[in-house]
């Protein structure tokens, strides 16, 4: 049995098509505004105006890349720590789940999680989140996001195995530093990726995420 299941994400191949986001929303039948997986665009750059040719602007320091982010099924999940009822819990295989028969809907986990993973379902009155498609994994299938990615930029596996295969980077901008929750994520950075906390860019689609 797995000890800590985890996502792998390849920022160097992601093309921001957001198929993973839609596949996830479809699989979980989520209403408007609820997205367990979101693709965040991150970047920076500016223009230098030409003194003589007023219509001419020279681009400088441009970069942009994407991070597809869902629940990190953290090793030290802050959502589990702050939950008053114990509805938010971590399974033996590392998956962090909400037990909606216990959840009181106080939304403190939402305030605490730096990845925006627990999301409040107004109609149900409880928190909901990515469950790593545990039902699909059980019958030997891939998660909705992994199966749908045309770039093969996503993968699910045992954290230790993924680290052996892809290295152990777990924090690039705009994700927070890993110190808060020890996220179970393995990332192949984009060539222009910046280390969390040392970023010079900003989230380019804030309204969307």
């Amino acid at each position: 049995m797995a000890k800590q299941l985890a996502f792998y994400f390849d920022a160097s191949t992601c093309i921001d098509c957001k198929t993973c986001q839609i596949a996830c929303k479809d699989k979980n039948n989520n209403p408007l505004g609820l997205n367990y997986r979101r693709v965040v665009n991150y970047g920076a750059g500016s223009w230098i105006p030409d003194a003589v040719h007023k219509e001419l602007f020279i681009p400088t320091n441009f970069f942009a890349y994407n991070v597809s982010s869902a629940c990190m099924h953290c090793e030290e999940p802050i959502c589990v720590e702050v939950c008053p009822t114990g509805a938010m819990h971590k399974r033996d295989d590392g998956i962090v789940l909400v037990d909606d028969s216990k959840c009181v809907g106080c939304r403190l986990c939402q305030q605490a999680c730096p990845y925006g993973a627990p999301q409040y379902n107004e109609a149900k009155g409880v928190m909901t989140k990515c469950d790593l498609c545990a039902d699909l994994l059980e019958i030997g299938q891939e998660t909705a996001c992994v199966a749908s990615c045309p770039q093969r930029a996503l993968e699910v596996g045992e954290l230790a195995d993924l680290r052996k295969k892809y290295g152990s980077i777990n924090a690039i901008e705009p994700l927070p530093k890993a110190i808060y929750t020890k996220p179970s994520i393995v990332i192949t950075p984009h060539p222009r990726s910046q280390y969390s906390g040392k970023g010079t860019g900003k989230i380019l689609n804030p309204m969307e995420v």
Binding site: V80, E81, V82, C83, P84, T85, G86, A87, S101, K102, C103, V104, G105, C106, R107, Y120, E122, K124, G125, V126, M127
Partner: peptide
């Protein structure tokens, strides 16, 4: 609270 009926459960996680 979104589900006030679960309020009695809120003292269960005293540990953390």
């Amino acid at each position: 609270l979104g589900s006030p009926l679960n309020a009695p459960l809120t003292i269960l996680n005293i540990g953390s």
